[in-house]
Design a protein around this nucleic acid. Sequence first.
DNA 1: GATTTGCCACCTAGGTGTCAAAGT
DNA 2: ACTTTGACACCTAGGTGGCAAATC
Lengths: 290, 290
Amino acid sequence: MAEKRRSPCALSVKAHAFSVEALIGEKRRRSSGEEAPSPGLCELSPAPRASCASERSEDCSDGSPESEDVLLESPQPSLPCPGPGSGAGGAEDARVDLQGSDLWKRFHEIGTEMIITKAGRRMFPAMRVKITGLDPHQQYYIAMDIIPVDNKRYRYVYHSSKWMVAGNADSPVPPRVYIHPDSPASGETWMRQVVSFDKLKLTNNELDDQGHIILHSMHKYQPRVHVIRKECGEELSPVRAIPSGEGTRTFSFPETVFTTVTAYQNQQITRLKIDRNPFAKGFRDSGRNR
Amino acid sequence: MAEKRRSPCALSVKAHAFSVEALIGEKRRRSSGEEAPSPGLCELSPAPRASCASERSEDCSDGSPESEDVLLESPQPSLPCPGPGSGAGGAEDARVDLQGSDLWKRFHEIGTEMIITKAGRRMFPAMRVKITGLDPHQQYYIAMDIIPVDNKRYRYVYHSSKWMVAGNADSPVPPRVYIHPDSPASGETWMRQVVSFDKLKLTNNELDDQGHIILHSMHKYQPRVHVIRKECGEELSPVRAIPSGEGTRTFSFPETVFTTVTAYQNQQITRLKIDRNPFAKGFRDSGRNR
DNA sequence: GATTTGCCACCTAGGTGTCAAAGT
DNA sequence: ACTTTGACACCTAGGTGGCAAATC
């Protein structure tokens, strides 16, 4: 049976479908729920990076307590690699706002801890950001990495409920970057949704082959969000070096600093996690008894 | 606390990470398990498409019974739109093999049915293909659409256990294409993994806004896989028309033809689904009683 | 003694066909 | 009479912290 076929040509079908995809993308991706954008005033600050002349970093501080100044040296203007869209519409005007910063601050006031395991553990809270100021038609990668806040190792002193320096940091681990799975996508697409890093996982397994971010336990870290303009000429391949940094902007939020642990140290952190993480509902007091 | 930062520059960190990502991509994506590639001999056959002179289609038949000839008219050689990479390394040498075709054939022999619901229903089996012959360094989109096999409507006659023509097809529905979520990716990436369309969903809701593929119930359909070379100049945007078809190859497998239903008609189909779909394990005879 | 590991019960999230009821 | 819908029990898949045992 069957010989005929419906009229529209394949290409216009596809063209239509791509736009459907675009119109729908927002809903499909909005899986982790939205929140009203919290302010998070960004003070621009010139950026570091020894050999990489083209990266800029902004530390987005919004007057949170004890702002760990995770900063910087040797300002470096961005300029090189005259790629398409170098003038306006690069990542130059990008702005990144942390979502759910209220919750982050509650943790931060206590002293955020993140569990790391061999198999990989999600962060809670997860980093979620709202991005603005991109060129709607330019393609971007959004990525996250996590850098040491200092070169110290810590231990938790129970009787004083405080973290104390316990020596120098362990030797560096293989650096990893979590590329947001929607990458690459147009500025329009990124700006339309809340960009969530809830699939990202942390591990203490230096031989990890799952692409998780490798960290040392009992160290302090700062997550960073990168907005990377995609150049067309040199295809941004996973196996090649990044087009030399021009058109890359980096953002970090002091209230997201955390200490890695393999088991929670501060019981207030445990309680707040159980209270807020839906997956830990089984440990809440309400009715449940184990 | 904290003023210093570890040595490596951000860009080399990222570069490294991207390659880590590449090295790991295979494992991360290989979630639906692999299978030994089943043969599926492909007989090339010239392709249709009224206004789109640049698409080719191969019907991959491997001698399955009652091969519904889901074919064609007016052969059209591919030639137009001299885009980058037109010569070698396009999608021109691409080959697509259906995975799990044994299971598909078992269903096909009975008469495959796929449930469609308002909320969207996955296909079982899901289309899973192995792709070869791509240019490793070229970027491609992989997409799937589902076209009517004929312009008939069907009804199932219980006492004869057969599908009978019940009239002409309902009016066309909004065309949709499912773009594989890993798109775009390099030929190398696509060829390294089994490409699975298990997240694709079918719906009978013509107003669907979830991006699912819209079909009519009680009609016969043929899924198709498209390999679309990504041109660099005209960014293949979800909101713009597809670069005019050059570098696009289309593949279909007769054993994957199915009839849409809102409730299974043939109990043999029900049984085979329950027997093979892990999510239906609750309905298997073994021990379970409801 | 401090830290890490592995297993566990308990959740969230969502994919199955069933079945009775509702549509057409 | 045929087809569709929606609530449901039963699964898969996987994210929680607890806890005892192992590790260093």
